[in-house]
Every structure is written in C-alpha cells, then in structure tokens.
C-alpha cells in the first residue's frame, strides 16, 4: 500500500507546483511556454531513441506466441487468425490486438474458493476497462485538435456533436469524458482492491494511472466548473505549435495545472511503461508470421561449428573397433 501512497503524493506534488508557480509567483511564461517546449523535446527525443533501439535489437529466433493450427498439409485446417502464416493474417491479428486488445479477452483468474479448491474463471473486466479507457483517450485526443488547428479540421465538429449526444448540462458533458474516468477508475482500483494486484504493483504503475486521472480531472473540471478563457488557450496552443510563442495572458489557473500535468506526462512517457503503445508493434511474439513449417528459420548468429561425424570417428577408430568386435559400416 505504501507504493500507492508514494505515487499519490508525487501526483499531488505535481499539482501543487503549477498552483504555486502560476497562482502565487505568476510564472506564466515558464509554465505556459517553457515547460511544454522542454517536455515536447524530451518526449520526441526519448520516443525516437526508444524506437530506434528496439528496431536495432536483433530477433534471431522464430518466437510468435500462437494458439491455433499452423499451415502445413492441405488437409489440416490452418488457423490464419490465431497462427498467421501470411502477412494478411498477421495484419489482421495485429489489428485486432491493437484496436480491441484481443489477448485480454483470454484473461483468466485463478482463485482459491470453497476450502482450498482452485477455481479458474474468465475475467473480462481488465479488457473492458482497458478498452473503455483507450478508446475514450483517442477520441479525447482527437477532439483536442480543435485547439491546435485553425481553421478547425472538418471531422472534429462531427465527433464533438456525437460525443455530446445527450446534451447533458451546458457546456454539454462528453460521453468519453465519463467513460475515460470510469475506465481509469477501474484500472486504478483493481490495483488497490485485489491483494494479488497490490503485491505486483509498483509505484510507477500507480503513478501513471494517477497522473492520467489528474490530467483528465483537471480537463473536465476546467470545462465544467472552473472556467478558463478557452479562446486564449487556443491562441497559446496555436502559437506553440507554430514555434512563435506568445506570452500567455490570463487564461486561468486550471489551464496551467492541466498543461503542466500533460507536460510531465509527455516528458515521462518515453521512460515509462506507457511505451507499450509503440512497443506492441515491436514485440516479436506478435509481429512474426508463424511459418516455421514452410520456411526454415536459421539463427543468423549461428557460426560454423566444428563437428566430428560418425564417418570420421569410424575412420579414426576402425582398427580398434574391429579388434573389440564392434560392427563397422565400412570394412
């Protein structure tokens, strides 16, 4: 439990920093322009560095994890989805994994119930919570493009209207805002409630979840409760994106808290477990075709090994073998 408190205190500290920095000290230039730029720099350099280092690491072995029949003889039915032997099958399996987290559907739970009997059951909550969070996240990020594009990209208005379909409140509550909080809450609570999860959770696990929750809450709060000057926020966002930063004026404290937390998240992301986003594409257990019966995979690291064949052995010991009465192949 201590590990959770460490993460919680760290996130609270990160909220207090811009609160004091902007609210009390008025460092709007630092928090509005300086820190976001530094964070973006760390993000891009770190992200590219990680990708390049992954791309350079050799994959000598044929190690896809599969759960279906590989293509072999024509009368054995092959499963191209679970054990892809073509690039289309690979693409389909990868797309289903990336877009719908298919492997989490197979998530099992082992529990001791009824006097030490081990019960296995399927557990779809992680899949559902993950799906809820990630899909909401991508829609929320897409909606944010309205702050970074002028004229605003055409598709955004449609997504906004669809997202605010229920017209709850004014400004309308977005469905994804609710969904992302529900998803994140579950992902966080499962690490707090279940003892097994608590055991294997590290401060960094709690930290990223709490940091994203803080980002989401600061965003939702400034939309609905602590109003900011959104038009000025867009001016700042556009000026940053075009590398001609303006000195930010009174936008509102919640905006700076939101921006600072996002900056921290972006700067921390290349060093964190959140790199699973690009990492899933680089995992050899998923991005390899399973074609070991059609194509021989030779370890590129194999060097010619000096071997002593039986023929050579017999040549060497033929006389001794004959003497001992052992059979030989060549007389």
């Amino acid at each position: 439990m201590n590990r959770m408190w460490i993460a919680l205190i760290a996130v609270l500290a990160l909220i207090i920093i811009p609160w004091v920095g902007v609210g009390a000290a008025g460092l709007t230039l630092l928090f509005g322009v300086g820190i976001p730029y530094i964070a973006c720099l760390i993000f891009f350099v770190g992200f590219i560095y990680r990708i390049v280092s992954w791309a350079q690491s050799p994959v000598p072995f044929h190690i896809p994890t599969i759960c279906g029949q590989q293509k072999s003889l024509p009368w054995i039915k092959a499963n191209n989805r679970e054990s892809p032997h073509s690039y289309w099958g690979l693409f389909a399996r990868m797309a289903l994994e990336v877009l719908f987290f298919r492997s989490l559907l197979r998530n099992d739970r082992a529990e001791l119930k009824q006097r030490q009997r081990l019960i296995y059951s399927s557990n779809r909550f992680l899949w559902a919570g993950g799906l809820l969070f990630h899909w909401s996240l991508i829609i929320v990020l897409f909606r944010h493009l309205r702050f970074f594009t002028e004229p605003v990209l055409p598709g955004i208005a449609f997504v906004q209207n669809l997202d605010a379909l229920f017209h709850v409140g004014l400004p309308a509550l977005y469905i994804t805002d609710v969904a992302i909080i529900v998803g994140l809450s579950y992902l966080f609570l499962r690490r707090v409630i279940y003892p097994q999860m608590r055991l294997i959770s590290l401060p960094s696990d709690y930290f990223v979840l709490l940091l994203i929750i803080a980002v989401v809450l600061s965003g939702v709060l400034m939309r609905h409760f602590f109003k900011i000057d959104a038009e000025k926020a867009k001016e700042l966002a556009l000026s940053i994106a075009s590398f001609r930063p303006v000195i930010p004026t009174a936008i509102g404290l919640p905006f700076y808290i939101h921006l600072f937390l996002v900056s921290i998240l972006a700067a921390y992301l290349p060093f964190s477990k959140l790199m699973h986003a690009p990492g899933v594409f680089f995992s050899p257990t998923r991005n390899l075709k399973n074609d070991s019966r059609a194509r021989r995979h030779i370890n590129p690291w194999s060097y010619p090994v000096k071997v002593h064949t039986y023929e050579e052995y017999e040549d060497e010991f033929r006389e001794a073998m004959k003497e001992a009465g052992l059979p030989v192949e060549k007389e």
Binding site: L145, F148, T149, E150, P151, L238, A241, S242, F243
Partner: peptide, 11 residues
Amino acid sequence: MPIWYGWLNRS
C-alpha cells in the same frame, strides 16, 4: 500533425 497544419495555415 498540429505543427504541419499550423505551418500550412500561417495566414
């Protein structure tokens, strides 16, 4: 993406 878009629409 926002960066390219910003450059294209500077006016």
